[in-house]
Design a protein around this nucleic acid. Structure first.
Lengths: 349, 349
DNA sequence: ACAGGAATGGATAGCGCTGTCCAAGTGAGG
DNA sequence: CCTCACTTGGACAGCGCTATCCATTCCTGT
């Protein structure tokens, strides 16, 4: 009926891949106009029940799958949100993403995923790509971003949720916990139990600013209490192969007055406890050990690990909720949501 | 110059969101045609160096971000691949995905992510959605899928990589390890060390068929060796809160001749060892304990856990490699790649 | 029986880009 | 100086869908 539908069966042999069924073909088969089929798919209540059922049946029979590319282009809504994490291999980000996904997927949004590998530059490139895909929203991990990235985001008017770290000045909206506060609280917890000389073990390099913020929190509390500034031991292990344990012996040898060691990661902290047991170091008698982040193992080990639990899943869920709000065109009254953390007081400190 | 470009500056006030710069506007500003700009973006070597530089500079100045929706629609190539995992919260899938992403991202592909929550029905819906987005390829976790999903995939002619489980009959191509073989190998390892009476602990419910396959492998080896069939203890804990430890006491009480316990998960196995120590059960003297899957903790615990290491990252990398092959239009000679596993012989068995 | 409005379906014109085909410019050889 | 191959840029026609506006139909109240 339309010359545009230049699919002359039999004229030339079908291409290698049989091209997918189009809206127009469904319309033709169902004896209605294209727009009616369109409405059946995306606006069912603008069509009578009878037509709807008929069209849907024809569409199903033909195996019709609407082309989202075309619909997104025409409607300027992609129903896709982009999310940037430093690395998916880290379960923390997996859990946060799961929280996000659990909110967004039921609402009909798809997730475009990108790994920044802790690089602001990569993050910016990912944001550019996402913007190219005309995502309806973008979730970013952390609070520090390239200025160019921030500008690009602002110009695009795309809803942005920054998550994980608490920041009072988000690009758009944000949700997270304060690592400075976590470090400070853990220090206070230790001091309340009589600890006076602190060491901090972690690698503050690549992993954005979180580790550093924890150390800063510890430092601030020590300074305020008139204690000696904490010793800082940098370890540069890949995740999964911590040498954190080895460092505990060295610390006690080099600085025997140390009576509390904070490990930036939970994995290192657990391994340190194991090492301490092997070395017959009394934990927490001789030295208290604590970490950041929780893991099942932390409670099974003897002595069990005192640590800070961050609400990762809650962060993801809240981030998803906020994104949904922004996607609906609303602006939440609190643009920066501060989530707490919990000191799990166990045996090691 | 073109009436179609109906953006009369100043005629009516700009809309709430300043609409993004279009190819045509860049072309106009650079004094070239639209197609030339298009080529500068996606086919730079079809344009003279001089024009290229000029156009790129203009585009950068204007903050031009090409609309991938439009380009994908026009070129029938989206540069997006979809990937379905049961849940991103599980680090195993995170690691596999990281492997996939490490191959695909540098090649310019974006990743559309979906969680099936262990449901074939959800998986099918995700596949349908992905197909709607006209992804260039789809990666699926596991080897069991809804028939309708398989048919849909076949009809679409989209490259498909099934990963994680080994299957000799993939929809398209596949890569993974055999859980049956892993169960069998671990059983043989145990038998070679004199173990005669086996128990298997795990929850074979939700988590697709992997746990079951491991048990089947164990069963087959027991049968072949003329041993009593293994006892099967079902535990139904959520991940992260295993009650695996508690079951070990019960097993030894109910079936005192058991001298080897296989745990379907590594987390449960580690917790079981902790419990065994508490209960003063001699491991591996009284009973050997082993698991599937490795975790840093497995080697730190005393006694350290004998377990099967699956090459998760390698699986992801190989899956990414195969996808890239298929995306390039090539079909690898081996359509089903069988990756091995490694029995990490440690102290607990 | 008939106006008035809701409910329903259709025609038209793009969304922003690229594939295809063609025109113009460029340089080497005769 | 002209022809021929080659390089470079452009015009045109869609990709498959939806927004907008318009034409029906169908029901209600008077």
């Amino acid at each position: 009926m339309d010359e545009k539908a230049s699919r002359h069966p039999g004229e030339d042999p079908p291409k290698v891949a049989l091209s997918p069924v189009r809206l127009q073909e469904v319309a033709q088969a169902a004896g209605v106009s294209t727009i009616t089929v369109s409405r059946c798919i995306s606006n069912p209540n603008r069509v009578s029940k009878k037509t709807l059922e008929h069209v849907l049946k024809v569409a199903a029979t033909m195996g019709y799958i609407p082309n989202k590319l075309a619909s997104s282009l025409a409607s300027a809504k992609s129903m896709v949100v982009g999310i940037v994490v430093p690395t998916i291999a880290n379960p923390i980000h997996g859990i946060i993403m799961q929280g996000v996904a659990d909110l967004l997927e039921p609402a009909g949004y798809q997730i475009l995923l990108g790994n920044s590998h802790f690089s602001k530059r990569n993050e910016m490139e990912l944001v550019r790509t996402f913007l190219g895909h005309r995502v309806d929203g973008i979730l970013l991990t952390g609070k520090d971003h390239a200025q160019e990235c921030i500008d690009m985001l602002a110009r695009s008017r795309t809803p942005v949720v920054e998550m994980f770290d608490y920041t009072p000045n988000p690009i758009d909206v944000s949700v997270g916990s304060s690592n400075f506060d976590a470090g400070a609280s853990l220090a206070q917890y230790m001091m309340a139990r009589g600890r006076k000389r602190f060491a901090f073990v972690g690698h503050t390099g690549l992993d954005d600013s979180r580790m550093m913020a924890r150390l800063e929190g510890l430092r601030a509390v020590c300074a305020e209490a008139g204690l000696a500034p904490p010793l800082h031991y940098e370890i540069t292990s890949d995740p999964g192969t911590p040498t954190g344990g080895e460092v505990i012996g060295a610390i006690l040898r080099e600085a025997p007055d140390i009576d509390a060691v904070l490990f930036a990661g939970h994995l290192v902290a657990v391994s340190a406890i194991q090492y301490a047991i092997d070395l017959k170091i009394d934990v927490p008698g001789r030295v208290a050990i604590a970490g950041f982040g929780d893991t099942p193992m932390a409670q099974w080990i003897k002595p069990s690990l005192t640590t800070v639990r961050f609400p990762n899943r809650e962060t993801g869920v809240e981030a998803g909720r906020m994104m949904l709000e922004r996607l609906a065109g609303r602006t939440p009254q609190t643009r920066a949501v501060r989530l707490g953390f919990e000191i799990l007081s166990r045996e090691s400190a």
